[in-house]
Design a protein around this nucleic acid. Sequence first.
RNA 1: GCGUUCGUAGCUCAGCCUGGAUAGAGCAUCAGGUUCCUAACCUGGGGGUCGUAGGUUCAAAUCCUAUCGAGCGCACCA
Length: 557
Amino acid sequence: MKEVIAKLIKKALGELDIDAKEQDILNVIETPKNPDFGDFAFPCFAIANQAKTNPHDLALEVRGKIRQLPAEFTDIQTSGPYINFFLNRNQTSIELINKILAKKERFGSQDIGKKQKALIEHTSINPNASPHVGRVRNAIIGDSIVKILAFMNFKPEVHYYVNDVSKQIAMLVLANADKLKFDAMLKKYVETAKKVEKSKKLEQEVFLLLNNLEKNDKKTVAKFKKITNTCVKGQAKILADINIKYDFFDYESKYLVKTKEILAELQKTKKLHKDKQGRLYLDQRGTVVKNKMKSPVLVLTRSDGTGLYPLRDIAYTIDKLKKAQRNIIILGEDQKLYFLQLKEALKLLKHEAPEVIHYSFVLLKSKGKNKKMATRKGDVVLLADFLNEAISKAKKEIAKRKTGGDPKKIAVGAIKYSLLKNNQNKVIVFSLDDALNFEGDTGPYLQYSYARASSIIRKAKPKSNQIILKELHDKETALIKKLSDFQQIILSAYNNLNPSLIANYSYQLAQIFNEFYHECPVIDSEQEAFRLSLVNAFRQVLKNSLNLLGIDVLEKM
RNA sequence: GCGUUCGUAGCUCAGCCUGGAUAGAGCAUCAGGUUCCUAACCUGGGGGUCGUAGGUUCAAAUCCUAUCGAGCGCACCA
């Protein structure tokens, strides 16, 4: 459509003896935010500058040269230095709605992946406690990205990396936590961590346990395994409660044997050295990290020879890379530098690194100050508690309205939306009270809009399928325009691997629908058939959006 | 100190990549709307030096530079 406009303007400019390239015209044509200014606008600033006239007059002159109104438009006006084009929307509206209704849950999807396998690693929480809201941001973003990739015809495979070789688990082993249930783990961990922090002797015992683990001492291995299993099961269960599932749990301990090979290979690059304390480290002076840290090294082993996390991570990542054409990992902002270091280490071994998505922390809002969630201090909102409170709130609301509907779906929608709507590299300031408010820019608002639309469809008894299209109401036009944005938004969310774009779009879409709902009666109206199809198209697009966020829709609520 | 991300209404955010027409929402606040398809909704009011200062440009919340403030990171945690 922009091409049509560009040709039109070029011709008019030609008649005014102004020479302009079609491409230059095309580049500046924009879509006004305010519908009063039409569907497309051509600002005259640049051309006026070139022709040394003022943009105001130029707009008028150009408009004057367009004598015949092309069929695509209902009007062409000038407004100051802008020439505004008003589209003939009726025909294109019906085409769009029909397309949505025909493609259904595939509307907006494209075959970009061509069934390639995409491996996504997300969540990967330390298996030592019940996850808090901050940790869950990783899982929720990751899960949404999995869905976006599937929508673009990739074959996603979801991996959870279980850090079962760690001081954290060793501390729990030391505290005999292998006999504990999942719910008791957090308290035990906090307690033990405090003790170990104060005592060098206890810390030595922790290291000894790790040493025994690397030596594959049967008793030690069994204790680590017991605790890890309890924790992973507990975590997976609560995540399954909010419908986040994994295809594979990859245990870090499995990669212990490969670390010897990795060290041998790194040795060949001559970048691996031993420091005075006997630790092996990678010299990273010639790499991108050189100006980002005090001493550009990546330490791979402790002085007692046991491996550190980065060493096993190299082994694990290389293994992951073999499994899929595309590799993606979701990491917190605290891992930015570390990931660059890992990337450089992989480069030495002639491997690419996965694509990485970083997200910022979730801070807890309390008494005017924003605090970081710290598991050890108990300043946390656990996902389990958040979910329970949200469910009881949803139950209460449903009881009040006597409408029915699944309170858990509403609770999960509220939780996911509250953690997805913000831009990823922006810190989330989390307040439980705000998150439990189901009005305004929230998950339940979106679900409510869908339920309302569904209610219309349920109650309608259309007398005729005849689409009568009179002049569109403003709210109808706005709704259709928003629906037509969907494909572009999804593409952008895919290109940037950024679900918040979809979250924001969903909210705007729902908002416009609610305005339409108030101003345009559907049932028994003259345009009943058309409006019913519009409502159905809205339901489909909102459902598709919310599916990509991992949020279920409800027919009633 | 170095690197990095963020700074927009009382609070929480969108807009910034790709510069354009009076800077948008939600919460809170005030005033309205339900014999009518779900009021978890809608309409209206008040509330903004877009951190600050320069620069580029016909045009800057948007691009560049500096500066202030906050988060995160910078060697045996993962």
